[in-house]
Design a protein around this nucleic acid. Structure first.
Length: 469
RNA sequence: GACCCCGUCGUCUAGCCUGGCCCAGGACGCGACCCUUUCAAGGUCGAGAUCGCGGGUUCGAAUCCCGCCGGGGUCACCA
C-alpha cells in the first residue's frame, strides 16, 4: 500500500568516508521509502565546519551512488545543508523563547564543569540545575525548559515503548552563547521543516530521543515515528570503528566487493525475511519492513560479505564483468586486452574462482601477462627431459588444431594422452604450468583457446627454452 | 556511576507476541566424501546452541512472570 506521504531522511555528517554503519542506516531508510512509495531525502549535517569538507561530501555522494541509493531530495539542490539553514534555527529558537519554553542561561562553563564533577562524585547523572530558569536573562546559551515531573515515552517501531523519566533529563542547550544551534536542535527543526514522518537511525541516538520529543512538543509540532536500528559491532562486540579494520564503503569498493553484495549483506545484517539470504533489489524493496529489523547488535563479518560478493560475481555476465574489472586490471599494472568480447569470455572463466574484483584479476593474471616464473614444486615435477618431449608433441598439436577451439584441443590432447599411455591430468598440468606458470587455473583447454594459438605457442616454446637451460 | 538498549550454534539469524509442530530450523565459516584435466563451482553428509544464569507459573517454556549477571550505548555551549 503505497503511501506517498511517507518521508524519511539520511543525514550524514561529511567528516570522512562513509562508514558501513551509516550506509546501513541509509539503506534502511531508502528501502523503507521505496517500499512505501515515499520520499527519501539526503540532508547534510555540516555544522562542524572544521571537519566537514567538500571532498568528504563527495565521498558520501559517491558511496550512495555506487550502491544505487538514489535520493529524491537533497544535494546538489540548495537547502539541504545545515549551514544553509541558520535562519530557520534562529526563528525557531525565538519562538521557543517567546513562548517561555526556552530561556537564556549564562552559567560559566567552568561552574557547569564543577557541578558535573560533583554529580559524578555523588554517582549521579549530571543534570543542569535550572539556576537560570527564571532569571529572565536576555542573552547567553538558550536552554529548553523540561518539565520536572512525569515521563516521556518514545514509541519505537523496533523496540516498542521506551520510557524516560524527566528527572533523568535536563534543560539542554538549543543554541550556544555564540549563536550557533546545537545538533539536537538542528535535527528537530530540520525534521519538522522537511516534514519527516519516520526517523530511522542508529541505536546510539535512542537516549537523545526523549529530549528531541520534548522539543517537538514545545514547538507544538507533531512527533515523527522513530525506529532505532541496532548498531554494527566489531569482533569484540563494541561499536564498529576504524580500529577494527577497513570500515568505509570506499575501502570495500577498492577491494572489489560488488555493490549489490554490499547492499544485500548490509540488508541481511540485522534484518531478515525467513530463511532467505539472496535478495534482488526489487525483492528487498518488496519485503523490507522496519518491524523485521533486529533489536540486537550484529558483528560485522567480512567473510560473509565476501560470500555474497562471490555469489553475485558468479551471476554476472562477461560484459558487465569486463566493465567492472577494467579499472582493477589497470590498477594492477596489467594491460587491458583490446578485444572486449575476448576479455568478457576470459572473465567468465574466472568469476566462480574469485570473491572480489581484485581476486578476479589476480586469479586470471596469466590472461594479461606471460608467466614470470613457474611454480617451483610443479616445475621440478613437470619441467623435465620427459616434459620437454611432451611439450614438443603439444606444440605440434597446437599448430595443427583446426579450428583452435577448446573442444578441438581437448579431443587432440586426449588422443595424445592415450597414445603416450598417460593420464590426461599429466598433460593438462604440464600445459597449465607452461601457459599460466601455476597449477591452478580455469579448464586448460578453454584457457588455451582464449589465449589464442600464437600466444599459446610463444608460451610453450618459452618453457622448452627454460628446460633446455 | 545513573539512565537506556540488548543477550538462540564461532558469526548472521528463524522461532518468542498467539506456550506443545523445537531434545531448536536456515545461512556463512569449518570438516569429510562425490564429481573432476588442476583450482574452483556444484552435490551429499557431518561436527557445532543444555535458547546468558537462577527461581517461578504450567501437564508442558527458547517462548509467560520475577530476580540476577554479562555486553553495548548515552550522559558536552561534539555531531
Amino acid at each position: 500500500m503505497p503511501d506517498a506521504g511517507i518521508r524519511v531522511r539520511f543525514a550524514p555528517s561529511p567528516t570522512g568516508h562513509l562508514h558501513v554503519g551509516g550506509v546501513r542506516t541509509a539503506l534502511f531508510n531508502w528501502l523503507f521509502a521505496r517500499h512505501h512509495g515515499g520520499t527519501f531525502i539526503l540532508r547534510i549535517e555540516d555544522t562542524d565546519r572544521s571537519r566537514s569538507t567538500e571532498e568528504n561530501l563527495g565521498f558520501v555522494l559517491d558511496a550512495l551512488t555506487w550502491l544505487g541509493l538514489d535520493w529524491d531530495e537533497g544535494p546538489p539542490a540548495p537547502g539541504y545543508r545545515q549551514t544553509e539553514r541558520f535562519d530557520l534555527y534562529r526563528a525557531h529558537a525565538e519562538r521557543l523563547l517567546r513562548a517561555g519554553r526556552a530561556y537564556y542561561c549564562d552559567c560559566p562553563p567552568a561552574q557547569l564543569e564543577a557541578e558535573r564533577k560533583a554529580a559524578e562524585a555523588r554517582k549521579e547523572t549530571f543534570r543542569y540545575s535550572g539556576r537560570c530558569r527564571d532569571r529572565g536573562l536576555a542573552a547567553g546559551a538558550l536552554r529548553l525548559r523540561i518539565p520536572d515531573e512525569g515521563s516521556t515515552v518514545v514509541h519505537d517501531l523496533i523496540h516498542g515503548p521506551v520510557v524516560f523519566e524527566h528527572r533523568q533529563l535536563d534543560d539542554w542547550i538549543l543554541v550556544r552563547t555564540d549563536g550557533t544551534p546545537t545538533y539536537n536542535f538542528c535535527v528537530v527543526v530540520d525534521d519538522v521543516d522537511m516534514r519527516i514522518t519516520h526517523v530511522i537511525r542508529g541505536n546510539d541516538h535512542l537516549s537523545n530521543t526523549p529530549k528531541q520529543v520534548l522539543c517537538y512538543e514545545a514547538l507544538d509540532y507533531p512527533v515523527p515515528q522513530f525506529a532505532h536500528a541496532s548498531m554494527i559491532l566489531g569482533p569484540d562486540r563494541s561499536r564498529l570503528s576504524k580500529r577494527h579494520g577497513a570500515t568505509s564503503v570506499q575501502a570495500f569498493r577498492d577491494e572489489g566487493i560488488l555493490p549489490e553484495a554490499m547492499v544485500n549483506y548490509l540488508a541481511r545484517l540485522g534484518w531478515s525475511h525467513g530463511d532467505q539470504e539472496i535478495f534482488t533489489r526489487q525483492e528487498l524493496i518488496e519485503r523490507f519492513d522496519v518491524k523485521d529489523v533486529a533489536s540486537s547488535g550484529a558483528i560485522f563479518d567480512r567473510t560473509k560479505l565476501e560470500w555474497f560478493s562471490h555469489e553475485y560475481l558468479k551471476m554476472t555476465d562477461g560484459a558487465r564483468l569486463a566493465a567492472m574489472a577494467i579499472p582493477f586490471i589497470e590498477r594492477a599494472g596489467l594491460p587491458v586486452p583490446a578485444d572486449r568480447a575476448r576479455l568478457a569470455a576470459m572473465l567468465e572463466t574466472l568469476r566462480e574462482r574469485a570473491k572480489t574484483l581484485v581476486e578476479l584479476v589476480e586469479v586470471g593474471r596469466f590472461y594479461f601477462e606471460r608467466p614470470r616464473e613457474y611454480e617451483p614444486k610443479a616445475a621440478e615435477k613437470f619441467l623435465t627431459v620427459d616434459g620437454a618431449q611432451r611439450l614438443q608433441r603439444l606444440i605440434e598439436l597446437v599448430q595443427a588444431a583446426e579450428p583452435f577451439t577448446a573442444e578441438v584441443i581437448e579431443t587432440a590432447v586426449r588422443a595424445l594422452a592415450a597414445e603416450l599411455s598417460l593420464k590426461l591430468v599429466d598433460i593438462a598440468q604440464l600445459a597449465r604450468l607452461a601457459v599460466t606458470g601455476r597449477t591452478a587455473s580455469p579448464p586448460i583447454f578453454q584457457v588455451l583457446a582464449l589465449l589464442g594459438r600464437d600466444e599459446t605457442l610463444v608460451r610453450l616454446r618459452a618453457v622448452q627454452v627454460a628446460i633446455a637451460r
